[in-house]
Design a binder for these strands. Structure first.
Lengths: 218, 218
DNA sequence: AGTGTTGGAATGAATATTCATTCCGAGACG
DNA sequence: CGTCTCGGAATGAATATTCATTCCAACACT
């Protein structure tokens, strides 16, 4: 009995009042709704960082967000959809923060400093978000689109690196290796600070940037 | 004639028959017991790497290890005790592989190469174990002793780094930052290869070693 | 040696708990 | 007063852990 088919119509979207972009000031109701969605995302992000995806219970997320457990399912189809929404949103924020207005014509030294410092700015201002992205890198419950978001950023940076190598301003070798080395070092810097309960200071970021530049320059 | 000085009197430990090694032919029994413990550790390590701690069900571990679910509780008090046993065991293996017979009197360049290449050797020969250690770094279910094992290794390397800085052969700065940077880069190299389904070749390790040396040398 | 006894390792179905998801009555809003 | 959002108890599946039972190798005693 009870065929697994969902008798209820699929309300596809969480049925947010679908606010026309025509209500500029009076956002009372919509604001509340929107705030709930944000509260759920924020609470889930924090808990996923603390205990991991499988270690976090949905009702816990609801409690921390100050909403009922059922409310979460008004905004997200499932726990997996929730974690994917967080991943995509943060990854795109990160990607935009690093790549928007990228100085494509600057020299390699400048380009590297730009990328590094923008990553540092994002990571310092959004420590939990950055750790979340780190922690869920390649997790089994990420869907194809979430992976695509990641891949898009990777492709862009790969092109930048390859171009710099062609100009002989970076060491020759597999671009993926160089990028993995840089990103790994970046994460290592954060972790070494977080392990002591601090977030890296600007001076730390600048110091590490110089170190890693010397690692990859030709 | 087989001094059976082993009456029934071992209530606390899993009570491996522990018979005097005087019955070469009958080693069967003890072998079986010991193998079960190993089988459980191996199966759990693999599954924890694949699905994470919370994502892995204890009966799954039992199936993979080829034992009954209850048997796991003859060897480990709980799922957490099991993950801690794996962590401690692998961390100590890693620590020994890197630090045993450390060339304390070699110059800094040699010392760095030694540490890096020994880490590479361990990581390449024990990919799942290394990923396990990475994945469970600072996990909430690790107990105090597991953390202590980690700390012990860290303290030793910190001393080496500090000494090298005093000789002005490494860049000045917080040793933790330098170490985090190096370890992070190391992990980044592994990940960049694993993402493509390969393990780093010797040439990759050597290349990365040279890069990172240039990052930290004074 | 042959036979009976026994301690305790091994098992896996049973239990109690926890979890993701659903459901529906109660309000808020217009 | 109809419509729509919330909350949180209800539900059923899944999970960690237990425990009554089976099984076997090593004595004990002939």
């Amino acid at each position: 009995m009870a065929p697994p088919s969902n008798p209820r119509s699929r309300p596809s979207q969480p049925a947010i009042p679908a606010g026309r972009a025509s209500q500029p000031a009076i956002a009372g109701a919509r604001r509340v709704v929107s705030d709930k969605r944000e509260a759920i995302l924020d609470a889930a992000l924090a808990l996923f960082v603390e205990r991991g995806f499988w270690g976090t219970a949905v009702p816990e997320i609801a409690d921390r967000a100050g909403v009922g457990a059922g409310t979460i399912y008004r905004y997200f189809d499932s726990k997996e959809a929730l974690v994917n929404a967080i991943y995509r949103g943060q990854k795109m924020r990160f990607s935009a923060g690093v790549l928007d207005d990228f100085p494509a014509s600057a020299n390699t030294r400048e380009q590297f400093r730009t990328i590094w410092m923008r990553m540092a700015r994002f990571a310092s201002a959004n420590v939990p978000a950055f750790i979340f992205l780190e922690l869920h890198h390649h997790a089994s419950y990420l869907d194809a689109e979430s992976r695509a978001v990641e891949q898009r950023m990777l492709d862009i940076i790969t092109a930048v690196v390859t171009a710099a190598q062609a100009r002989r301003e970076l060491k020759a070798g597999d671009p993926r290796l160089l990028m993995g080395l840089v990103l790994g070092a970046f994460i290592g810097v954060i972790r070494s600070c977080l392990d002591v309960g601090q977030t890296p200071a600007d001076a730390d970021w600048a110091f590490a940037e110089q170190c890693i530049w010397e690692a990859i320059r030709s």
